[in-house]
């Protein structure tokens, strides 16, 4: 057993971290929230060049996957840097299309995967089937080039979207996909592909939450070390320390669930993956939310301002907790799927 990242996986994380640190991601996120997409799309293309969107696709469609562990590595970094855009959705769409390819439905993957994998186009999707219902709104449908709608027994290419609205996180812009559109797949392959999309969406969202949580913790630790009151750093007070210690405990126990889910998904261990993905989604979402509440409180009024960049992570943590199914749905899956002979 080697349940830790290998040198190559750690180098991948470092290279993404370096690339995103050099790009002005907070600036791009603010542009994105204002409906200006150019700077965000520049970051997007670089993520494509780094191979992030090919991690869920097989080699025959220009991907390098499926590589769930590396996907989790990448999304931790995306969360850490508050990257805007439908990254989870694009990876989920790539997973959906790749699954169709494996089930003998080659046309849609051939048509869409190369551009998605290369980062030239982004995708968004909704899952509304009985077993995969995560709501009717699609993230960033106004900028995505491929709009997929998967319901019971069908996957359609939506003809457009309407009614863009902002989420609590202003960088997350949600739209309603228009009904109808070209039928890309139907029957059991469509349902299987939708289930696969949900698996990858849960994994990528959980990993992103983890990165958001660590970013909030790191920024808050730095802040309370430097902020002085009563003549000493506020970080020397036990009430402050203990709150941050609890955030670290939450994140450090969410992390192995996220990577455990990635390993179960990679190994095709359906029973374990089902529970592990649900556990990861719930736990990482809660940990990020916990980190956000602590970060806001410990930054004082400064953290409550839109101008200060902390706000990007604070609001994203809350939005991601409910994205791709709320905690109740995923906890239900944990109880349903767990052993307990």
């Amino acid at each position: 057993m080697r349940f830790f990242l290998d040198d190559e996986q750690r180098a991948f994380a470092r290279s993404l971290d370096g690339m995103l640190t050099a790009a002005d991601v907070p600036g791009a996120a603010r542009d994105w929230a204002a409906g200006e997409h150019a700077s965000g799309l520049a970051v997007w293309r670089r993520l494509g060049e780094a191979g992030v969107f090919g991690l869920a696709a097989p080699e025959e469609y220009e991907g390098v996957g499926p590589l769930p562990v590396e996907t989790a590595v990448a999304f931790v970094e995306l969360g850490r840097h508050a990257v805007p855009g439908p990254a989870v959705e694009t990876v989920a769409a790539v997973a959906l299309l790749s699954r169709l390819a494996g089930l003998g439905v080659p046309e849609p993957p051939k048509r869409f995967l190369p551009a998605l994998v290369g980062g030239r186009v982004s995708a968004t999707l909704t899952l509304t089937g009985t077993r995969t219902n995560t709501g009717p709104l699609a993230l960033d449908a106004d900028t995505a080039g491929v709009l997929l709608a998967a319901g019971d027994g069908e996957v359609r290419l939506a003809p457009g979207q309407a009614g863009t609205r902002a989420s609590l996180d202003p960088t997350r812009r949600l739209g309603r996909l228009l009904p109808g559109g070209e039928l890309l797949a139907s029957g059991e392959p469509a349902d299987a592909a939708a289930r696969r999309a949900l698996d990858w969406a849960a994994l990528a969202t959980a990993a992103q939450c983890l990165g958001v949580g660590y970013a909030l913790l790191d920024r808050t630790v730095a802040y309370v070390k430097g902020r002085t009151q009563f003549g000493v750093p506020v970080g020397s007070f036990q009430a402050v320390k203990h709150r941050l210690a609890d955030v670290l405990v939450a994140l450090e126990f969410a992390r192995p669930l996220v990577f455990g889910a990635a390993v179960s998904l990679r190994d095709g261990n359906r029973a374990a993956a089902r529970v592990d993905l649900a556990a990861a989604k719930v736990t990482a979402g809660d940990a990020a939310h916990h980190a956000a509440r602590a970060a806001l409180q410990l930054h004082g009024a400064l953290g409550y301002t839109a101008e200060y960049d902390l706000s990007l992570w604070l609001l994203k943590a809350r939005a991601l907790r409910g994205a791709w199914g709320g905690a109740g749905m995923w906890r239900g899956r944990v109880v349903e799927g767990a052993g307990g002979s």
Partner: peptide, 14 residues
């Protein structure tokens, strides 16, 4: 929690 805060997060002793 004191140990976590001081040794893992690097917060100052108090």
């Amino acid at each position: 929690r004191d140990i976590i805060a001081e040794r893992l997060l690097g917060l100052p002793k108090g």
